Simulated scan of single mutants.
Amino acid sequence: MNTIPAALSVLALMAVAVCAVTACSPITVLNALSPAGDTRSSKDVAYAAGPRNKLDIYLPEHVDGTAPVVVFFYGGNWVDGNRADYAFVGRALASRGIIAVVPDYRLYPEVSYPTLLDDPSAAVAWTARDIARYGGDPARLFVMGHSAGAYNAAMVALDPRRLAKFGMKPSMLSGLIGLAGPYDFIPIENKTTRPVFHFPNTPLDSQPVSHVSASAPRTLLIAPVNDDLVNPKRNTGGLARKLRENGVAVTERYFDGVSHTTLVGSIAVPLRRLGPTLDEVEAFVKGK
């Protein structure tokens, strides 16, 4: 038995516990314990005009134009988040031979629905257009997100109006990957989320489940068995069911050892023992 991953897991969990009662960030700990290894990065790449419209690209050591590409959107309830905090996701994907693109996007109150989806869509369009210059294959392009970021990814992949603004169609995507995403959340219970979606007049077309069709890309959905922030049965299970009803291939996974937050954390080296999230993503992207 390899004791190094176990020791890292204990160290990371202890650090996260300490951060819960101090000013430090658990994400900072995960990034510090997730070295770049045989990967490299290109930072602060502009995909549109504006201070929030930049992205970071994480690359495997060797790329030849055939590498699959994942655009990852972080969560934060549409009011918070920074791409630099998710270096551990980019490094993890790059370590598996996958180019990772991690964009920032404008947040509430600067934008609300539906404008909040313009930046994620623009980032995907930029990737489709320009990632070949970095050794990626635009014909193997996936969108992925955690929590609010999974919502963003789902809307880009399911609502054709989003990519149409940039001359693209959802059918140009090779897949959708959602981690603990909110896909069906009317009426909105979270008070922070309400103004983002104009509660109590939340448009029905703001929900990813409203846009499922046979043209949706193949999908991987992962959620904690017990998620106290986003109901996995209604959201992950409901979206999976609708996709299958429309003939879309869906892989659905539920993990016991993770929470809403540590699901994405389990991608990082120190917490991989909590759940096989990275393995599932790699298998899905590479069609295993």
Rank of each mutant, 00 (worst) to 15 (best):
D80Y: 12
D80E: 14
N82Q: 13
N82T: 10
R83N: 13
R83Y: 12
A84D: 14
A84H: 14
D85I: 08
Y86L: 07
Y86I: 09
Y86W: 15
F88I: 06
V89K: 04
V89N: 03
G90W: 02
G90V: 03
R91W: 10
A92H: 05
L93A: 03
L93K: 06
L93I: 07
A94C: 10
A94H: 08
S95K: 15
S95N: 13
R96L: 10
G97H: 11
I99S: 10
A100W: 12
V101Q: 11
Y105L: 07
R106N: 08
L107K: 04
V111Y: 00
V111Q: 05
V111E: 04
S112K: 09
S112Q: 05
S112C: 05
Y113M: 11
P114W: 02
T115H: 15
L116Q: 08
L117A: 04
L117S: 03
D118W: 11
D119C: 07
D119G: 08
D119H: 03
D119M: 09
S121E: 03
A122H: 09
A122D: 06
V124M: 02
V124H: 05
A125S: 06
A125E: 01
W126M: 02
T127I: 08
T127N: 07
A128T: 10
R129C: 08
D130Q: 12
D130W: 11
I131M: 08
A132M: 08
A132T: 13
Y134Q: 15
G136V: 15
D137H: 11
D137V: 11
P138F: 06
P138G: 09
A139F: 05
L141F: 10
L141N: 11
V143G: 07
M144I: 03
M144K: 04
G145S: 02
H146C: 00
H146I: 01
H146S: 01
S147K: 06
A148S: 11
G149K: 03
A150G: 08
N152Y: 02
N152G: 01
N152P: 01
N152I: 00
A153G: 05
A153Y: 08
A154I: 06
M155V: 03
M155C: 01
A157Y: 04
L158E: 05
L158S: 12
L158N: 13
D159A: 13
D159M: 09
P160T: 10
R161K: 14
R162H: 15
L163E: 12
A164R: 13
K165G: 14
F166H: 15
G167N: 11
G167W: 13
G167S: 12
K169A: 15
P170Q: 11
P170D: 14
S171C: 13
M172N: 13
L173T: 12
S174Y: 12
S174Q: 12
S174C: 14
G175Q: 09
G175P: 10
L176Q: 11
L176M: 09
I177P: 11
I177V: 13
G178W: 05
L179S: 04
A180H: 05
A180W: 04
A180Y: 07
G181Q: 07
P182V: 03
P182N: 10
D184L: 01
F185Y: 06
I186Q: 07
P187G: 00
P187D: 00
I188K: 01
I188H: 01
K191T: 15
T192V: 08
T192N: 09
V196G: 06
F197I: 00
F197Q: 01
H198C: 00
H198W: 02
H198D: 02
H198G: 00
H198L: 01
F199L: 04
F199Q: 06
F199D: 12
P200S: 01
